[in-house]
Design a protein around this nucleic acid. Structure first.
Length: 596
RNA sequence: GCCUCGGUAGCUCAGUUGGAUAGAGCAACUGCCUUCUAAGCAGUAGGUCAUGGGUUCGAAUCCCGUCCGGGGUACCA
């Protein structure tokens, strides 16, 4: 059992017997002791002075004597003001180290028959342009919380809803028809998503020119936007598509295929994947049916112009449009359809949507609407909301071309890893193939760690130059320390030094005890699958652990120590730290190179 | 206007259910390659935790006000 739990129970008993007091759970505060004071675990006694009717020091003293008697792992205690500091004996930390060293699934809970099924939606791209930095944050967060949910004993289905229909793709289609000259990924060598994105930009260029011309001839801005020839043509394509016009559907399919091929490459490079992909073109009609059912059951209402609305003023929200006056569906309608389809396909216990925080209101409304429509799971949906990625130059706006393209960014990072490595003379003993694979791991480690280490809820600043830094609190620093530990273990093996799975006569330094303590604090298990902090907590934990290890062991040569229990202990400690760090980083989707 | 999220070192970020003297990295400066791999280590300097009140033994953390910023706010997704 964990030491804080043991102390908690002893404290409960002590308060009961000494002061006839039964505290509530959060009245007993057990923390780690400040690093510069002696002791390991601290019980805060201020909340009990009113029941002990004694000074904080005296109360702490009495509780200390009692609790020390109860818990065998307590070596001693000291009192500073109202803080009761316990020193835990070495045996406890070593028992924990042994467990962490031996157990292959240390820090995780395997899924079993009673596991909950968690569906996690992430990525959810539009098919009219390539992925950019904002999508990268989404994909990394989605993949990471899926991994964390898995390691917490859940069954996980990763899903992606592809926004494959609508006016945006029609714009690219129209531009390709007009100015494409038959250009394809095959004949141009371009990645499919980039090619389609190019025509989306092309459309916008012509559209803006047409608006300018119309305004010059006396139209208002609104009229011009409505009546520009390009826009009219795109709308017509959308109508044709909805009417299942063969030629239009064929073009739509072809261009979407180009995009999917491109996306697949990017997903693969990022190391993310999906168990089930939904397409909006297959779900929006279901949503429409559900909304119309709502109208007939009196849950929603229809105006004279035929538009359909939900009145959510009782829930403290506004009125929400569900179908336009021309009967076409909106974003919300589609999400209702997608939700229904998913729950038909899987017995989902918990639904998590990884979507940006600009849609907080959308998901608040979606939860209420699903509930009103009689879906029991509606109000329990979890919106994993994350902040925007900002650039030093300002906001990313795809139409203004101020986006950081995902593929370009990854390529750049790999090139920097390559250059750095050559400069430092690293990886020269590896084959070219092995080295390339390592560069990829380092580059993606840097990118992923940079994004995941910050609290997902906050907007983050992405400075391309700083992100490529491999020093300090970065992925490569953690990978580097890992690789060094691996190197020690390899050398130990080469020199025929066997690690004995026993820990006797070990003398612990303060630093080593600190490391042991941290091993027991691995945060890989969280209470909620959708815990919005967890990737960042794990990232910062790995950094702290590795930094402490580096600081201590930099000046201590393990291998040149004489064979002894102490050497054996240090090898076990190093090996365990490597194992835990690897596990933590893998939960972030970061691979760990054996050498670098 | 209303709703909502945020403001911590020059910059990027940590900071556990309220706990003891607020922590890292980057940038700047100073040392260290005979060490397990210098993608490293050690050190110096850098703070009115936006601001004013409140709650209490104790507040960066909880409550209220103000200022600044992001996002949303009925026919974009």
């Amino acid at each position: 059992m964990k030491i804080d739990q043991l102390i908690y129970e002893a404290a409960l008993k002590a308060l009961n017997e000494l002061y006839q007091f039964s505290p509530s759970k959060n009245q007993i505060q057990i923390n780690n002791t400040r690093k510069d004071l002696s002791g390991d675990i601290t019980l805060v006694v201020f909340p009990f002075v009113s029941v002990s009717k004694k000074s904080p020091e005296k109360t702490a003293e009495e509780l200390g004597v009692f609790i020390k008697n109860e818990v065998e792992y307590i070596e001693s205690f000291n009192v500073i003001k109202g803080f009761l500091n316990f020193e835990i004996n070495n045996e406890y930390w070593l028992v924990n180290l042994k467990e962490a060293y031996e157990k292959s699934d240390y820090g995780t809970v395997p899924a079993g028959d009673n596991s909950k099924l968690v569906m996690i939606e992430y990525s959810s791209p539009n098919t009219n342009k390539p992925l950019h930095l904002g999508h990268i944050r989404n994909n990394l967060l989605g993949y990471s919380i899926a991994e964390i949910a898995k390691s917490n004993g859940n069954k996980v289905v990763k899903t992606n809803i592809v926004n494959d229909r609508g006016i945006h793709i029609c714009k690219s289609m129209y531009a390709w028809l007009m100015w494409g000259n038959g250009k394809t990924p095959q004949n141009s060598g371009m990645k499919g998503d980039h090619l389609v994105g190019e025509f989306y930009v092309e459309f916008d260029k012509h559209y803006k020119e047409e608006i300018a011309k119309l305004v010059e001839n006396g139209a208002t801005k609104e009229e011009a936007e409505e009546n520009a020839p390009s826009m009219l043509a795109a709308r017509e394509l959308l109508l044709k598509w909805e009417a299942k016009d063969a030629e239009t559907v064929e073009l739509w399919k072809t261009m979407n295929e180009w995009v999917y091929e491109g996306f697949d490459k990017t997903y693969k490079m990022l190391g993310v994947d999906f168990d089930k992909i939904y397409y909006e073109s297959e779900t929006y009609l279901i949503g429409k049916e559900e909304v119309l059912r709502g109208v007939s059951e009196g849950i929603f209402y229809q105006l004279e112009d035929n538009s359909v609305w939900a009145d959510l003023t009782e829930e403290g929200l506004d009125k929400k449009l569900l179908l336009r006056k021309d009967g076409t569906s909106v974003y919300m309608t589609q999400d209702i359809g997608t939700a229904k389809m998913r729950y038909n396909d899987f017995s989902i216990d918990k639904m998590v949507y990884v979507v940006g925080n600009e849609q907080n209101y959308h998901f608040q409304v979606l939860a209420v609407l699903l509930d009103k429509l009689g879906f029991g799971w509606g109000k329990d949906l979890f919106h994993f909301s994350y902040g925007m990625v900002e650039l030093p130059s300002g906001k990313m706006k795809s139409r203004e071309g101020t986006v950081v393209d995902a593929d370009d960014l990854i390529d750049d990072m790999i090139q920097v890893a390559r250059d750095m490595s050559a400069e430092l003379g690293k990886l020269e003993s590896l084959t070219e193939e092995e080295a390339e694979s390592t560069f990829r791991m380092i580059a993606l480690g840097a990118l992923k760690y940079f994004i995941l280490k910050v609290d997902p809820r906050k907007n983050m600043m992405f400075n391309p130059h700083e992100s490529i830094d491999f020093n300090g609190n970065t992925g490569p620093f953690i990978q580097y320390t890992y690789a060094r530990i691996k190197s020690v273990l390899r050398k130990a093996e080469e020199n025929n030094i066997k690690i004995i799975n026993q820990l006797n006569n070990v003398v612990l330094s303060e630093k080593e005890k600190e490391l042991l303590k941290n091993i027991t604090l691995f945060p890989g298990i969280v209470k909620e699958a959708g815990d919005s902090y967890s990737p960042a907590i794990i990232a910062n934990y790995c950094y702290d652990l590795v930094k402490e290890y580096n600081q201590f062991y930099h000046d201590h040569s393990i291998l040149s120590e004489p064979d002894s229990d102490q050497k054996n202990f240090r090898l076990i400690l190093s090996s365990t730290i490597a194992k835990i760090v690897k596990k933590g980083m893998n939960l972030l989707g970061i691979e760990m190179p054996e050498r670098m």
